[in-house]
Simulated scan of single mutants.
Amino acid sequence: MFFMVIFASGVSAYDGVYGLGTEEQEQWQEQESSIMIAGYQVSPEVLMYNDIGTVTVTVKNMESAKSVNIKDARLLSRDIKVLSDSYFNIGRLGPGESLNLTFTIKAVCPDGIYYLKILVAGEDAQNIRYSIPVTVDSSSLTIGVKDIPEDIFKGERARIELAIGNPRHNTVTAVKIATMEKNVIPSEVFIGALSADETKVASFNFTPQTNGAHILNFVLEFKNGDNYHSTDLSVPLNVTDSKKRAELILTGIEVEPMLGTNAYKITGDINNAGLKEAKSVVMKVGDAEGIEAMNPYKAYFVGLLSPDDFSSFELDVKVGENGTQVSLPLVIEYKDEDGNKFSKTEYISIERHQGTTTSRELPVSMIVLLVVIAIVVIGLIAGV
């Protein structure tokens, strides 16, 4: 926003006034006046192409003892479009009083400096005119990558810093950067006002879930006056697997059936064969048809596993009665040093024994044993 006080008489040195005939122009040029343009204000200070703005002109009565009557005021331009109507029958201004007149304009012209003519008519041919410069510059804000990791790994958080600069000659407002990428947080960074030649930095965190090429799209939005503008930025990235992450593997898996049930006890070791710590490690049975985790070990909390470290675990599971072989999913969950969550699933095979029954039935071997014992007892009694 720009405001200027003009210490000048009401007679302008410019020749020619748009929209007036030759005789009228001579009258405007030669007439001295007791009213003058005391200042003007252009908002926004610098317009972009197709921007809508305002020009506010301050008209002042320079008389110290008498009032003057203001008949009308007009704003004229060959290049910039004046959207608002002229003022008519404005009224009287007392001694030393001022009046603000606001006109709405639109920059429909190429970049450059344009001079608008303000014409004010008073009583007794007290007419004044003045040229008001309006600048049109369509330069947008700039956005680029300030800092990004050289290597970006799957599942690991990468910090991306974007630099936003204002190469314009005026302050812009409501500056923000937004993204629709689901693996980028936050989704929006609000900067607010950005002064001329000022630069600010916005930070985002990207946690990729897949390898390969990725393109992150960002939108920079801002306001010039009441006009919205935007510019886009695309950041190409390549995601690979980290060679320095935790790597958890299972060894020594044993499956022990629980007598008289369809339940099994799963034991084994979980090892960290990677180069980074694995935190909050949890072992649990995955979801699958006919598989049900049981107490007391539905899940097993291991905790911290340092590189080359291991821990034992135990899980209890019940399987369905259909089929003789079951594929059991074992889920490993953990976090890295930055708190990123990871999950992997290993499968083991369980072979159901023919003698395994539900808890309401006796095993076949037990029934045979009882029959043999009964026969022996009966034989002994008969021998007696």
Rank of each mutant, 00 (worst) to 15 (best):
V364Y: 14
V368H: 09
S138P: 04
T251G: 10
E45G: 07
K318L: 08
F342T: 08
K223W: 03
N322C: 05
S203L: 02
L275K: 15
A8C: 03
S359F: 03
Y18T: 13
R159I: 11
S359E: 06
D336Y: 09
M258N: 11
E198R: 12
G21H: 00
A178V: 03
K223L: 11
Y264T: 06
K344L: 15
E321P: 00
L162K: 07
H229K: 01
E321C: 03
I373M: 13
L259E: 13
S327W: 11
T173V: 09
A273K: 15
P133T: 05
V11T: 12
S203E: 12
G268N: 04
G39W: 12
A382R: 05
L304S: 10
F313N: 06
R74V: 07
L47M: 14
N224F: 00
N224K: 04
H169K: 15
G122W: 06
G274D: 05
A73F: 06
T54G: 05
G16R: 04
P329I: 12
W28I: 12
Q27F: 02
N170H: 02
H229G: 05
P296I: 01
P44I: 10
Q31C: 08
D336G: 12
A174V: 01
E256H: 09
D15C: 02
F301A: 14
F153E: 00
N127K: 07
E24K: 11
E161C: 06
G355R: 10
D336K: 11
A299Q: 15
N272C: 09
Q25S: 10
G53N: 03
A278K: 03
G94E: 07
I373R: 03
N217D: 12
I128E: 06
F2S: 12
L220K: 06
G303I: 00
S64L: 04
A263H: 01
S43Y: 07
A174D: 14
F103T: 09
R78W: 03
N50M: 13
T179M: 08
T171K: 13
A382V: 07
L305N: 07
M180L: 13
P236S: 02
D151V: 02
M36N: 08
G19F: 01
E198V: 05
V189Q: 13
V108K: 10
P167Q: 08
A288S: 15
D72Y: 01
D137Q: 05
R129A: 11
G16E: 03
